[in-house]
Design a protein around this nucleic acid. Sequence first.
DNA 1: TTGCACACGTTATAGCATAACGCAATTGAT
DNA 2: ATCAATTGCGTTATGCTATAACGTGTGCAA
Lengths: 132, 132
Amino acid sequence: MTTPQLTKNQTLVFDVLEKAEGPLSAYTILDKLRDHGFRAPLQVYRALEKLLEYGVVHRLESINSFVACAHPGDDCHSHGIVAFAICESCGQVMEFHDHEVDHRLMEWVRGQKFKPEKTTIEIRGLCEACAA
Amino acid sequence: MTTPQLTKNQTLVFDVLEKAEGPLSAYTILDKLRDHGFRAPLQVYRALEKLLEYGVVHRLESINSFVACAHPGDDCHSHGIVAFAICESCGQVMEFHDHEVDHRLMEWVRGQKFKPEKTTIEIRGLCEACAA
DNA sequence: TTGCACACGTTATAGCATAACGCAATTGAT
DNA sequence: ATCAATTGCGTTATGCTATAACGTGTGCAA
Ligand SMILES: [Zn+2]
Ligand SMILES: [Zn+2]
Ligand SMILES: [Zn+2]
Ligand SMILES: [Zn+2]
């Protein structure tokens, strides 16, 4: 997916996510953009929808939040499943991928003749700093 | 986790999930139990909390739903990560696990000194019947 | 010009989850 | 037996997450 020129709202939402320390909920993004004229959740959700489509933002299903892609310009997303480690204490997110994991999962779905559309791998726990 | 005797509400919720064809949302469970005296979401959520703790029910993070464990009595959950394939057309869920996937993910977290608490693997797509 | 696609704004509503209070039953120690 | 702690339960209220439905304006191509 090639990323077209972002619109004004898409740029605002993306900038907020990029500058954030960790993942943000849609409503948190909304609050951060009230000064820029945002008034309603849909303004955020519509921008997020496009940013997700372009692959520059990821949705963390297990915490209903969104995060800027940590590998911009990388082509990893086109040939692999993205995985996340999420610290439940400080909110830090690590994005990674593992071809062997991808391969095993895709072997399994192939055996089941299952047609995958979107795969979620999220590990919640404590990062090194917080576990100490 | 050994499963103690379930309470009345826990039994009702679990029975609904066991008899269901696929995953159910908490509010769908609530509706199915109104005839049995359920009036409020908390009655469902409190039962689910225990059932999840006992490991007899799983939560599907990507679709905000709950499903009865497909491997009752199995000890797989104690030494591996559970994965799900969810058909977005018919709602059918396949629960499986793959030691190699577990191993690779745990290798990764060990390398990062990340302390995992709960891992989610969910593949959304189309089952064989629905993809045809 | 006309039709279409798209971004945007707004209001309302739907869907998911928990806080906070109080009561009753159970358990386990004194 | 009594008291305290724990647990389950019921209820009301609230908060968080997400989308439906309607209308506006703009740019572009047929
Ligand atoms: Zn990414
Ligand atoms: Zn941390
Ligand atoms: Zn299971
Ligand atoms: Zn299906």
